[in-house]
């Protein structure tokens, strides 16, 4: 069976969903991601759904689950690139994905994750609160 590839990008994992999501494929992704977060100690997960033409309650639930599981494993999940028509439909369907962070594109999503890693570092006292570039 096909699996969706998971890429490692620094402290984050990137998943780009490019196929029409099959239920079994969604469940496999959930398992794979959980395993990979634990194995790599990733601090963030970016799920790019800009190619998805629909998100139904099943895929919505998968996104919610991934976010919840990754939170337990101390990683932040950001869903990026949801299309307007998909967003309108999801709201009408009654799904708010309240536990999931969102961003317009991969770049912005990455910034969110980096900000979080940076804030944690400041909390620990590893860095002062001035970001250095």
């Amino acid at each position: 069976m096909d699996r969706i590839p998971i890429l490692k990008l620094g402290d984050a994992l990137l998943v780009t969903i490019q196929v029409d999501m099959h239920d079994r494929l969604a469940m496999a992704l959930e398992e794979d991601l959980t395993a990979k977060i634990a194995a790599t100690h990733a601090r963030g997960v970016l799920i790019d759904i800009s190619a998805l033409e629909i998100v139904d309650s099943f895929i919505g639930r998968m996104l919610d689950n991934i976010a919840a599981v990754s939170r337990v494993l101390d990683a932040e999940t950001v869903v990026v690139g949801m299309r307007p028509a998909v967003a309108i439909t999801l709201v009408e369907l009654g799904l708010s994905l309240a536990g999931v962070k969102t961003a317009l594109n991969v770049e912005r999503g990455m910034t969110l994750i980096e900000d979080r890693i940076h804030a944690d570092a400041v909390d620990r006292g590893d860095l002062d609160d001035r970001p250095d570039e």
């Binding site: 239920d23 033409e53 629909i54 998100v55 139904d56 309650s57 099943f58 307007p84 028509a85 998909v86 309108i88 439909t89 009408e92 369907l93």
Partner: peptide
């Protein structure tokens, strides 16, 4: 329209499941 397409496809997906 794109939004109407997405709505009926999503509804179909729910009931088909």
């Amino acid at each position: 329209s794109l939004v109407d397409q997405t709505k009926i496809v999503t509804a179909a997906s729910e009931i088909a499941r």
